[in-house]
Design a binder for these strands. Structure first.
Lengths: 224, 224
DNA sequence: GCTATGGTTTGGCAATCATCGAACTATGCG
DNA sequence: CGCATAGTTCGATGATTGCCAAACCATAGC
């Protein structure tokens, strides 16, 4: 008995694999309907409906009604931060969700991973960031990196305001090495898409790069 | 079905109230024995022993054997960060663990809250930090604050290296207003204790201040 | 109005799991 | 060696809860 918020209540909700998968599916940002989430986790609509009601009551997701649809999204940045804090701990716990690496060469090269990029290209980018000192090995953005990324249109100071961690490493499924996650990873991916360098089709995690887009990106991390 | 670590496995462990309380009890740092933890959560030794085994297997806690005792501690800073990320979300979820505010005036004035300080004095300190711009309302340490705290022996750059959040707000049990948590909150509390300004007796959460200690602390946040 | 679709609620079954006491192992002390 | 303390393992039990199907409510389109 002691004071403080009841963290086990929240943790128990995420402890249900169905809930965990739904929450992870919501990290990228776009709100999803109950049926979409049911498909995502492979359960009946009635089951996920009950779960979503409890997640809403607990303040983990928010609902917005539009016609006969109900769109669910993560309630706020604290929830994103919580989910991202779970990842590295779960990573070390071992128990990965079963699945071997992707065979599709396009998937191996570049794909989305929640709201950031994964695959060979993403791993190379983090390598480059580490080599040029934009990011330090312990996961901090250096002053030089702050300046360098600023000239490219990534405002680190603004990103650091967000409550979720700025810079996180995320073990790459196919490469078995780290790529960049956190709000910085998300911002870079978003920037690439807005510039038209990267694009993805609905329903697929494959990320396509335009020819000059790929060349442009390489400049981000290939110079001293 | 998607790749990524199995977060629900870890979350389910914390979802057990007994486990959650044990983990929270370990945040302050000192390792505890299985019997101490059993007393903390009010369960039999056999029950917590089973739980601790699973927490250990999942990499949430570490054990060190010394004679016939087994000392349990949190495995690494990622776990601390995870627990601290849970707090604000659980806070908003409402469901607080039952207990009304403390009546003891000494408890209301200053007490420990995990590894940082709570109570009237702690709330006033955060108010002061916000008023003098040492900390911004959205939970960032300002450049001025970095310098100011540096002159007082708190190395923000070093603290920022830690994986757990530097600066977090934590709702005060008795005051119903925020006080300072995160690695900064912990560092400041540790500093006060090392300077001999604050002290606490074993088994009690009350924090005693020496007369000149209290005066000294006030200087931390009462000037422009 | 009728019908199709999206979503919630209810009832019940099955499986899980937290808990305990009791038996057991290991360490320390004399 | 004998005894006490710290901790683990095991089996049984009771409660929780995840899940589904079926019935029900709500919206959209005709």
């Amino acid at each position: 008995m002691r004071d403080g918020p009841n963290i086990s209540f929240v943790a128990a909700l995420i402890g249900n694999p169905a809930n965990a998968n739904m929450l992870l599916a919501l990290i990228p940002g776009p709100a999803l309907t109950a049926t979409e989430l049911a498909n995502e986790v492979g359960l009946t609509l009635s089951t996920v409906s009950g779960h979503l009601a409890r997640l809403g009551e607990a303040g983990l997701v928010q609902v917005s009604r539009q016609g006969r649809h109900r769109y669910y999204r993560l309630a706020d940045p604290d929830v994103v931060a919580l989910l991202e804090a779970l990842l590295p701990v779960a990573e070390r716990a071992g128990h990965r969700r079963t699945r071997t690496g992707p065979r599709d060469p396009q998937m191996r090269k570049a794909r989305s991973c929640y709201d950031h990029m994964a695959g060979d290209l993403a791993v190379r980018m983090l390598d480059g960031f580490l080599a040029t000192g934009i990011v330090s090995p312990d996961g901090e953005v250096t002053d030089a990196g702050r300046k360098e990324l600023g000239t490219r249109g990534i405002d680190i100071d603004r990103l650091a305001q967000e409550k979720r961690p700025l810079c996180r490493f995320c073990l790459d499924w196919s490469e078995r090495r780290n790529h960049l996650a956190g709000s910085l990873g998300a911002a870079i991916f978003g920037h690439f898409e807005r510039q038209g360098w990267a694009s993805r089709r609905a329903g697929s995690r494959i990320v396509h790069f335009s020819a000059d887009g790929e060349a442009e990106i390489e400049r981000w991390y290939s110079r001293g």
